[in-house]
Write a protein that binds this DNA or RNA. Structure first.
Length: 596
RNA sequence: GGUCCCGUAGCUCAGCUGGAUAGAGCAACUGCCUUCUAAGCAGUAGGUCUUUGGUUCGAAUCCAAACGGGAUCACCA
């Protein structure tokens, strides 16, 4: 980064000295030189032909000569058409490498003084987590880590949707068919047990609807009139009135679900600094609605319902409170936005929520702005696309939903099977082996879901997701394990390499050069990922770094090298690759093994 | 219908703040393990970057339109 700035500066000077034109260094854009040409950075001269009054090659040639002469970091150059390719002094690269080696916080941004809240996961308590939730959880966790690495103060929160008609459905089915079953008595994980009754409700409900429809009732009408639905509605009403029996049942079943979720969260390695529960926040929004009416930015219709007019913002009129005075979805979110801000005065509030709610978040932000809330500007909807299966869309009704717990277990089984096939567990205790399978399984799964641009809809192909070769998590983990072996060997040989142990090194191989380039680039990547809220940027980087190292590893021997300086340098280089592979994978929430 | 998102190799995806001959992985084919872990490396083959116009010295990238796919527009959440 500093290197690029220095070169831009030099080019700016060169333009002034050679052609007498003034171009601000910040305007001098450099790009990485394509592999087929010599050099590290390329300056494009086309844009200056008019101003200078010379051809692009002439400009490149003249600038190159000036830079070779005057810029200490430029060793040589070549010109191809309008492209000036600059080769950087080897010692400059080595200096940068020594710098990052000694800088324990290389890539960690300076404290920004900014507070960022990241809300993610936000499950319903009527069924277990599925594949779509996994994308959400991994994204949220990773983005939080990336924002921390950018120097922000981050608060991770989970807004649990623990109330409403959906949980009443599970409760009702349980009352009718549960026979007192518990997670303990059945051996079923709590969230799955509750999910089971949700499915049972749905099945019985559907039968009732079909029956009514068979009697000639309109389908929509039948959906509302089905006795089970009516009972569920009654239950919800009782819940809101604080009916003791209903509330106790609700507490019991939600308790099961929370225990189940906790287990899943622990297993997949995500966590939260704070939980919010909709049962405690769903009424808060009414105060905001009141505020809006007072400020006359909301309006009341004849029937008493409250609305906000967002047509000026290119949206529609939106209902904020029903005629009967009860809340709708957005009412809650108005309330929780304020609550969250009071709890943690944020500069930014990130909501990791699927893209089906794009419109909702536009409305939320615009409405809060109408209320004059300064924090509205900080609201950012990290919208991500659905996860499709090769068979098409996931449909809970059609039973094609991929359960999170089952998927993780399958990944672990596959990791075990593959590892055993390759005979890679020699010398592992059973516990270590189990640990490794888990690390590999989660690495494969998380990497697979995070390497794709969040806003794109993605295809989850089970076969590919458990692949351990190519552009995968385990490939990167493998690179780390290989390096670890090298470092163990170096330690055994008593080789403690520090920056002074290779101060005479020179004549770097191209593969070594490439690895240094990747390493030096790490902070810029962290910054970009933070600006874009994009773990995929980190994932691609980790892969490129691992690939560059593997090429080096294959081509160049370390311990057979007779030149001690070169050998020491290569050990140090390896150690740094391990470090930044570990760092970048950590930003993805992926652990990295010492052996595999 | 309005609004928003997506369309790159057979498949899954990078590249998109405009720059050289558009890159990976998988699948196919060819080489490389008595030498630091072959879950690796090197190579071959595979492309009208959906289409058409525009801006520009230069467009996968920016703009417009069309086509295809998706989401959303509830007194649901």
């Amino acid at each position: 980064m500093q290197l690029q700035n220095a070169i831009s500066q030099s080019i700016s000077q060169a333009l002034q000295a050679v052609f007498g034109i003034t171009v601000d260094a910040a305007q001098v854009a450099l790009q990485p030189t394509r592999k087929e040409f010599a050099g590290s950075f390329t300056f494009v001269t086309f844009p200056y032909t008019k101003q200078v009054g010379k051809g692009p090659e002439q400009i490149g040639q003249a600038l190159g000569e000036y830079l070779k002469e005057h810029a200490e970091e430029i060793r040589d150059f070549n010109v191809v058409k309008g492209f000036l390719n600059l080769e950087v002094e080897e010692q400059v690269w080595l200096r940068l490498f020594r710098n990052l080696m000694q800088d324990q916080s290389y890539g960690q941004g300076e404290p920004s003084g900014r507070n960022v809240m990241v809300e993610y996961s936000s499950p319903n308590t009527n069924k277990p987590l599925h594949l779509g939730h996994l994308r959400n959880n991994f994204l949220g966790y990773s983005v939080a880590e990336i924002l921390k690495a950018n120097g922000h103060e981050v608060m991770k929160v989970n807004l649990v949707n623990d109330r409403g008609i959906h949980i009443c459905k599970s409760m009702l089915a349980y009352e009718k068919m549960g026979n007192g079953e518990t997670p303990e008595s059945s051996g079923i994980k709590g969230d799955h047990l509750v999910g089971k009754y949700y499915v049972l409700f749905d099945k019985a409900y559907k039968e009732q609807v079909d029956e009514l429809a068979g009697q000639g009732m309109d389908k929509e009408e039948a959906k509302k009139k089905a006795p089970l639905m009516q009972e569920a509605q009654e239950m919800l009403l009782k819940w809101e009135q604080g009916d003791e029996h209903v509330v106790n049942l609700w507490k019991k079943m939600n308790g099961w679900v929370y225990a189940g979720f906790e287990e899943t969260y622990r297993n997949i390695g995500v966590d939260f600094d704070k939980y919010y529960y909709e049962s405690q926040t769903y009424t808060l929004g009414k105060a905001r609605v009141e505020e809006g009416l007072q400020k006359e930015v909301f309006f009341k219709k004849d029937n008493g319902s409250v609305w906000v007019d967002l047509t000026e913002e290119g949206l529609d009129e939106k209902l904020l409170l029903r005629a009967d005075g009860t809340s709708v979805y957005i009412t809650q979110d108005l309330g929780t936005a304020e609550l969250k801000y009071n709890d943690f005065p944020y500069d930014q509030s990130v909501y990791v929520v699927a893209d089906e709610q794009n419109y909702h978040f536009q409305v939320l932000k615009a409405t809060l702005k109408k209320l004059g809330k300064a924090y509205a500007d900080g609201i950012y909807h990290l919208s991500y696309g659905m996860v499709d299966l090769p068979s098409g869309k996931m449909k809970s009704r059609e039973g094609t939903v991929v359960d999170a717990d089952e998927l993780v277990q399958e990944m672990i089984d596959t990791a075990r099977q593959q590892t055993e096939e390759l005979g890679k567990i020699e010398g592992f205790t059973q516990e270590e082996a189990a640990q490794l399978y888990h690390t590999l399984a989660m690495g494969a799964l998380k990497y697979f879901l995070l390497k794709v641009d969040p806003k794109k809809r993605m295809l989850f192909n089970p076969q590919e997701s458990i692949d351990f070769r190519g552009n995968t998590g385990p490939f990167i983990q493998y690179t780390h394990a290989r390096i670890s072996a090298i470092l163990r060997k170096a330690a055994e040989m008593g080789l403690a390499v520090d920056v002074t142990s290779f101060d005479q090194v020179g004549n770097l191989h191209e593969a070594e050069q490439e690895v240094i380039t990747q390493l030096v680039n790490y902070p810029a990547v962290v910054k970009e990922a933070g600006n874009l809220y994009a773990p995929s940027v980190i994932a691609n980087y980790a892969y490129e770094l691992a690939k560059a190292y593997n090429r080096f590893y294959q081509e160049i021997s370390i311990f057979n090298e007779t030149d001690e300086q070169a050998r020491n340098f290569r050990i140090a280089l390896s150690a740094m690759v391990a470090r930044f592979v570990r760092e970048s994978m950590k930003l993805l929430g992926i652990q990295v093994p010492e052996r595999m």
